[in-house]
Every structure is written in C-alpha cells, then in structure tokens.
Design a protein around this nucleic acid. Sequence first.
DNA 1: AATGAATGAGAGTTCATTCAT
DNA 2: CATGAATGAACTCTCATTCAT
Lengths: 225, 225, 225, 225
Amino acid sequence: MSPSRFLSDKLCPVRAKRERRKEARPGELLEAALDLFVEKGFAATRSEEVAVRAGVSKGTLFLYFPSKEELFKAVVMENLGGRFTEWNQEFEAFEGSTADMLRYCMRIWWERVGSTKASGLTKLMMSEGSNFPELAGFYRREVVQPGHTLLRRIFQRGIDSGEFAPIDVDHAIYAVIAPMIFLMLTKHSATICIDDQARLDPETYLALQADIVLHGLAATPRSAA
Amino acid sequence: MSPSRFLSDKLCPVRAKRERRKEARPGELLEAALDLFVEKGFAATRSEEVAVRAGVSKGTLFLYFPSKEELFKAVVMENLGGRFTEWNQEFEAFEGSTADMLRYCMRIWWERVGSTKASGLTKLMMSEGSNFPELAGFYRREVVQPGHTLLRRIFQRGIDSGEFAPIDVDHAIYAVIAPMIFLMLTKHSATICIDDQARLDPETYLALQADIVLHGLAATPRSAA
Amino acid sequence: MSPSRFLSDKLCPVRAKRERRKEARPGELLEAALDLFVEKGFAATRSEEVAVRAGVSKGTLFLYFPSKEELFKAVVMENLGGRFTEWNQEFEAFEGSTADMLRYCMRIWWERVGSTKASGLTKLMMSEGSNFPELAGFYRREVVQPGHTLLRRIFQRGIDSGEFAPIDVDHAIYAVIAPMIFLMLTKHSATICIDDQARLDPETYLALQADIVLHGLAATPRSAA
Amino acid sequence: MSPSRFLSDKLCPVRAKRERRKEARPGELLEAALDLFVEKGFAATRSEEVAVRAGVSKGTLFLYFPSKEELFKAVVMENLGGRFTEWNQEFEAFEGSTADMLRYCMRIWWERVGSTKASGLTKLMMSEGSNFPELAGFYRREVVQPGHTLLRRIFQRGIDSGEFAPIDVDHAIYAVIAPMIFLMLTKHSATICIDDQARLDPETYLALQADIVLHGLAATPRSAA
DNA sequence: AATGAATGAGAGTTCATTCAT
DNA sequence: CATGAATGAACTCTCATTCAT
C-alpha cells in the first residue's frame, strides 16, 4: 500500500505514456502550472497537482522551482513577461503608419495573449494580487510596466510623426488597455456575468475599439473640426 | 430580539451593553466579512480574522453563522440578493420613459453597488466561483438571475411602448451589463491594470455607454435609416 | 437574530408548555441527563442538549451542577448509588429463606434497574469508564462496591443459616452478577450483536439462572452427592 | 511497493530504512489505532495520538487513511471483517461432526478474536455505534452479517445431517453468540462489573455453554423425550 | 435565580516543502 | 537527477464553561 494513494487516485487517472526527455521537464511543468493556475487560481492550485499533470513527482517540481511563488513567476515570464523583448523588436521594425501599428498591436495581442490561457494570468492577478504582494509587484514590474511602456512609445511615435494630436500619452493608453481587459474578462469569467459570450466577436470588437480610439486621436480630423 | 425589549427601553434608558451588542453582532460580522472577503477573497479570508475584526472571538462567529459558506451567503444576501425586491418595486413605480429608466438604473447601480464594497462580491465570484460551486450556484440564483430578469423587463417595457426596436432582449441586456462589470473591475483591480483610475469618471462613462446603447436601440432612428 | 439559533433549531423543536416550579428543576435536569447519557454516551452528550431537553438554559444547568462530570455523578446517585440504603433495609427486613431472597433480589433488580434506563449507566461505564477515571472510581465506589457488598451479605446469610454450602462468597456473587449484566447488555446494544431480542424473556431467564445458581449452592444436595 | 524492489534487495541487502518503514507504516498505524480505539473508544481517540503511537506525525496518518472513520474501517477489516473468507474456507473444509464443528468454532473464536484486542472493537461498536451510524452500518455489513451467516450455515449443516433438531436457525445462533459476547465484555470491562476475572476460565466457560446448546439442539434426545 | 452571549482550547484535515534514499 | 514519505503549521469548526445582565 503506497502513501498518497488517495490523492493520486484523484489526480492521476491517465499517466504519461511516453518517457519524456529530461530537458522537456521545466517546460511541461510550466505548461501544467499555467493550466491549473488559470483554471483554479494561484492559492487553490496544489503543487502536487501541477507535478502530477506534468507527469513528474512532487519532489521534481521543487527541484526546478524552489517554491510555488517562483513557479508562478516563471509561468508569468514564459507567457508574458519574457516576450516583451521580442514585441519591442517588432515595434522597432514596424514600417507602416502608427494607426496601423496600433491596430496590429491590438490584433496580435488577442491572437498571442488575449485568446490564450496566458490572459488568465492577468485575471488571476486581478483577483489574488492583493493576497500575494510579492507576486503582484513582480507582475507589475515584468508585465504591466513593459506593456504600458510599449503602448506609450507607440502613442509617442504617432504624436512625433504628426499622426496623433499631442494628447497626454500616460492617460491615452488606457483607451486601448480597457477594451483588451474587458474582452479578456468576458472570456475567463463568463459564467458569472454573461450567459452568452458568442455575441461578442473579439476581433471585430477590438477593431471597432481601435477605430474609435484612432478617430479620437487623429491629428487632422481634430484640427478640421 | 426579545419581546420585552421595548419595555426595557423605557425602564432602563441606558441599554445594557451585552444586549445592545447582541443585536448588533450579525451586522458587525457581516460588515467585517464583506470587508475581508472583498479585500482578500473567499478562500484566503480566515474565519477568525472576520471575528476579530468584528471585535469578537472565533467561536462567536459560528454562533451566528454555521459555516464560512453560510456567512458568505448572508453577506451576499445582505448586500445584493436581498435588495432586489426593493429594486423591482422601484421599477414598477417608475413613471418616466424607458430610456430614462435605463439611465437611472445604471446610475443608481453605480451609486448603490458599483462604487461600494458590495461590487467586490461580483469580482470575487468571477475569480473563485469555480472553486466553490455551491457558492457560485447561490450567487447566480440570488444575484445574477434576478438582475438579468430586471434588465429584461426594462428592455421589454421599451419594446412594448414602442420606444425600442424589437430586439432580442436576452442578448441586449449585455450591452448594459458589460460596461458595469468593466467599471467595477477597474475599481477593484486598479493596481494591476490601471495606474491612474481618476481618469475614468464612472458616472460620465456609464452615461455615455447608456447613450450609445439607447441610440442603438431606439425605434425611430432605426426605421428612419 | 439570536445566537445559538442554529443549534436551538435542532435541539428544541418542542418547548415546555407549562411553567414548572423551580424546585422541580434539578429533577428534570437529572431526568434529561439520564436519557441523553444512556442514548449517546457521556462524552457525546452535550451540556446544552441536556439543558434544552429539561426546558432550561445552558446557564441554569451549571447553576445546579458545577460541571458535566458532577451532573453525571448526580445522575448515578439518583438512579443507582443513592438507593442502596433502601435496598439494604429491604434486605434487613426480609423474612423468607435466602433462596427466596436471592430470587427476589434478581427479579426486583430487573424491575427497578435492569429494565429501566438506569441500566444504561452501567453499560456506559463499561464503555467510557477508562476515559473518565474519576467517574469510573466514583461509580465503583458508589455502585459496584455497595452492590457487591449486598450480594455478599445475602450469600453469607445463606451460609450462616445452613442453606448454602460454605463457598467462597467473594467469587460466588459473580454467578448472579453475570446474567444480570448480560441481560442488560442485550437490552442496550441489540443492534450490533443481536437482531431479535424478543426471544429472551428477561424474567424467565433470570429465574432460570437463579435456579441454576441456587441448585449449585444448596448445602444438602452437595452433601448427598 | 516499487517494481525494482526485488532487484534492490539483491544489490543492497541492508534495506533502506525509509523504504522499509514505508511498507510497515499501514500496519504500524493499524496496530496503534486498534490499541487506542479499544482502550479509549472511537470518539475519544485523537488522530494525532494514533500517529504518535505509530511513531509518525499527524500528517502521515492522513497519507495512508483519508479520515479517522476510514482508519477505523481499515482496523475493522484487518482484524475482523477481512478474515471471514479464511474462516468460511475452514468451515467448508471441516470434516467432523457438526457438534465438533460448533465446539471448534467457539474455541477458535476465543483464541483468535475474543481473547485479543480485536474483540474490543465489538465492545466499541456496542457503545458508540449509535453516535456513528456510518461506522455502525459498516460493522454490521462486514462483521455481524458474515458472522451470523457462518453460524447459520453451521446450524443448517447440523439439521441437514440429522444431528440437530429442525430448529429455527435464525434464532438458534444467538444461543452461541450470547455467551461469546458476554465473555468478551467481562474481559474488556472488568473493573466495572467484575473484580476478579480469573475465576471465569474462558475456555471452560465456552465449552460448557457449547455443551448446553448442543444438548438442547440434539435431534435424538428430543425425540426420546 | 436564570439567562444566553461569549470564550478559547482542542479536534480533524490539508498541503507546501524537505530530504533520505 | 528523481522520488515520494514525512512533516507541521494553518485552517475550519465544536463545545464545556463563564459571567454580565
């Protein structure tokens, strides 16, 4: 009779079939952790459950990540924080108008983040952030601030090029952030507030919001009005 | 409340401390519980902490509420679920146009719920609902469904009176619900997604959203188009 | 809203209708306590439950009995320990043969103790005695020892009068005690060991056991053998 | 038990302490639990005490048994319920007369159950069964019913072979059960009802009871009467 | 004398983390 | 590297007892 059998019975109905390469372990753990954190929240996700879903033992999890909090940080870096260098490079290389850049930015955010499980991390931080101040600080530092900075640079580019009116960049970015957050929340919390989410087509919604924002920001129409 | 209370009031103008507190207890506990649930979430709030914040011991809490889940339900009823009879009556008694009614409804929601701690309960259910299915069911039954029903009746009133086009009521209500939920979330999770929330004036925002919705719903312009 | 309401809901479906005289309180408490101790055991009986069944408040119970243990002792004295002076007097006054006395003793034990709830106290001490050493000591002192003493005197009377052979009195008494205890146990624990207790008629059983014992003890047959 | 265990045995004749203990744990815990349940009762035995007596910490107990109730059930199965298949097989294989079988049955019961701590479980269920209905149901299902069934089969064998008169088997079995239960109770509750238990030699007592029962059941003498 | 609100030690159970193997 | 047995602090809930009224 082995210990943990009651737990294991519940957690591990299907064992991993193939022997995975060792190098794949951290990635599998991160994937399992992302799934569970998004599904159940940070506090409610049990370490062992993550390990079992990744097909390893509890001990192995702690071999790669020294604590549940560090595991969470790694998940955040893998899915959000660590991608800003790439995204910043895309920004540097973009050659079209700033309006196109903003539309592209929102569309690509939905594709790569909003529509994926990664957006659940944002919802999670909104819910549990206050209980885990260190995680909240980390998330702000690694995700919120880089994201805001990127948006500010886009807006500034528009102003500098004369496309946008010289608005207050620090505030203007929320006109873009708000609809993205709203969209993400309807995706992750549908059952409580919205019965029928099919009605809101994300891409159309974001495109529309982008148009509204761009219309409001445009330098020429405003002077014409 | 004991039957002899009014008599005692006359005979003993300085009410007994013990008795005065006894009647105040449930309210004090509900208030403390609301504070903590909203601040830390359901799972992360410890029963004893609620008791201590209400100025009593651990045991006393369980004298009034048989479990943490029942305490939560009582908080929900006190702040949201139990107020629908009153709100429904206001709806019955309202005499203006349906457009005004909808504007009034959104404004008053912000005043009485959205801007108060009570709205944190909605945020909480969005985060933790899936971990506490019984609470989620209770919340849907006592808050979500009555709320949706009330909104449906408002929309139906507009259609019946010829003010609104004959839209699909079941879906239309989300045009009102969505901005209310977004507003509430920015309030409760400011640190994660928005640095400076002063920018978004709730009443202006809601009034604007109402205008947009009403414009889209109006019967005449649509026929004119 | 009164505290204890959840508890009271369960405990007090029927309130006492009439105002009882104050002097009756201790007796009612003892009666309620006997019922509950026998039904649920000492540890599993809650003080408040005793009070509620007696129609008084928890506080009143502790007014009359300083602790649950003292309440139990009082129940024992009321139903068993305190009756030995009376029983001893009956023994002193008895005028028939010792054989008749023994038969009378067993029959009357069944009537006054064995068939009543009081016998549940013996079963209770057999079960829980080791967890409550002070109660066990009290019970031995006030019930077991007086009972054994009385039986020893009866046996000694038979020997002295030449009715019984000069057996070892200290051991002989168990020939009487054993069937009484067995009978009592079948009464109180039927569900676990015996499905159908109707078969064993207590009075016939005890009379038979008495005959066997008396036959074994009789002075004459033994000398004849 | 891991698949590589036998291999390890060869490579490492001095078995790893951790692993050796792991396999021994459930047994050690069951033994500690049996001791304490019998000594103090189910409700009065604290989980941690069981763990400590088995030499482990509180948490370890719950690694092997998901709750105190399940621990108790496991103790019952280990000591009583799980042994009926073996006992039934002995019955099938028995080749002597039914009278001998019954005598053997009672003697062996005393050796293997009555005189051991296991019999304390029966006493325990008699005391606390009504406070733990699920445990009582389990005990009846796994111990009482198989036991009664086995005895019924023995009696039926006697009737079928002509050894016993055609009595009502369902009732007759209690003539055997009753003395076994009485014997067991005197063993476990000596201090309360019996000062000197040495007097009652269990094997003689049971043999005598068996004789009485068999005499009463015998087919021939009855027809002769 | 009587009440019942309040207490707080203590019980069962969970789970992040450690570490011997 | 990998395991999983073991730990113990922390959490929810219970109930005998106290004491202000």
